[in-house]
Simulated assay, not measured.
Amino acid sequence: MQRFPSDDKALSLPETAFELCQYLGFSEIKQVQWAWYELSGAVLSRYLFDEELRYAALLKWFYQDLGFCEKAEYFSREAADLGRCLQSRQGNSTTLATALMLLGQELDLKTELILLPGTTVMSCQLAGEIHYVDPLTGQSLNREQLHALVRGELGNWAPMKDNYLKPASAKQVLTRMLHELKAGCIIERKFESAMECCSLLLDWYPDDLNLHRERAFIAQQLGAIQVATADLQYFIDNNPHDPIVELVKMQLQELGEETQVFH
């Protein structure tokens, strides 16, 4: 049975993000809920009749008055935790953009998240025109700058695809958060938590071959050789023509030489 529903309609922001991080043992839901209630109540004082002035007031309040900014340890687990971001007012592009989007919605602004490769930006529709903002700085972004972000992640050859600018669903945002939490855990060598992040993602995307390969790596760090072996074999069986399959077969052979350690 899935620990969290896979139906997008059953997922919500920020509630599900708070629940996920408490489930993973990263933050206490009551504390982060109070931080959210305080911010979502305070932002209403920026409710101006003119929509464009309201948007400008939101950005000034968020970045200048409250001081939300990029966390120095950008790839850390804490930067990827939405609750921690609300409390410390520091985060990565996804947590900052999510906080800004949600506060914009409290002001009846048409704010949404755009999941570019490697980074997240916020969009806001004003008078029929879409405005994009860099969540790390609060600065406006044009299409050329958005393309530069894509090229920075994928290489100079990468085109700017229209689907990159499609607004993200709650499930897509939560998926990115879980990937970023997992990456932070791996960097900090918290492999048990990384394994749980991977398992939660596999609840939602059981056929994702790359997730199975990632879980195999994490399981190996934990000494769970049987789990790692099963995931690598699943990758090979379901992706026999992938260019890296020979490398995966070598990994599988090496695992067969290791001793199972139970945790």
Score class of each variant (00 low, 15 high):
237 D>P: 04
55 Y>E: 03
91 G>N: 08
192 E>M: 10
141 L>R: 03
126 L>I: 15
2 Q>W: 08
155 G>W: 12
132 Y>N: 02
232 L>I: 01
64 Q>R: 14
123 S>L: 04
82 L>Q: 06
22 Q>F: 09
19 E>P: 00
252 L>Q: 14
181 L>D: 03
206 P>C: 09
226 Q>W: 00
51 E>R: 14
192 E>Y: 13
107 L>Q: 08
198 C>V: 02
152 G>F: 04
196 E>M: 12
214 E>R: 07
121 V>M: 03
158 A>S: 11
116 L>D: 00
174 L>N: 08
257 E>L: 15
23 Y>D: 14
163 N>Q: 14
233 Q>W: 01
4 F>M: 05
248 V>Q: 03
213 R>S: 12
117 P>G: 13
229 T>G: 06
12 S>L: 06
41 G>K: 03
192 E>P: 00
119 T>S: 13
183 A>M: 09
8 D>H: 01
119 T>P: 01
123 S>N: 09
205 Y>D: 09
244 I>D: 10
220 Q>R: 14
61 W>M: 06
263 H>I: 05
59 L>Y: 03
258 E>W: 15
204 W>V: 02
160 M>W: 07
98 T>K: 01
167 P>G: 09
235 F>H: 05
232 L>W: 06
225 I>A: 08
57 A>W: 10
79 A>E: 03
197 C>V: 06
2 Q>C: 07
126 L>K: 08
69 C>N: 12
209 L>Y: 04
195 M>V: 00
108 D>F: 13
6 S>D: 07
151 R>L: 03
50 D>E: 15
112 E>I: 00
263 H>A: 12
257 E>P: 01
68 F>A: 04
106 E>Q: 15
251 Q>G: 03
242 D>A: 15
205 Y>W: 13
233 Q>G: 01
237 D>E: 14
62 F>L: 10
159 P>A: 11
21 C>L: 04
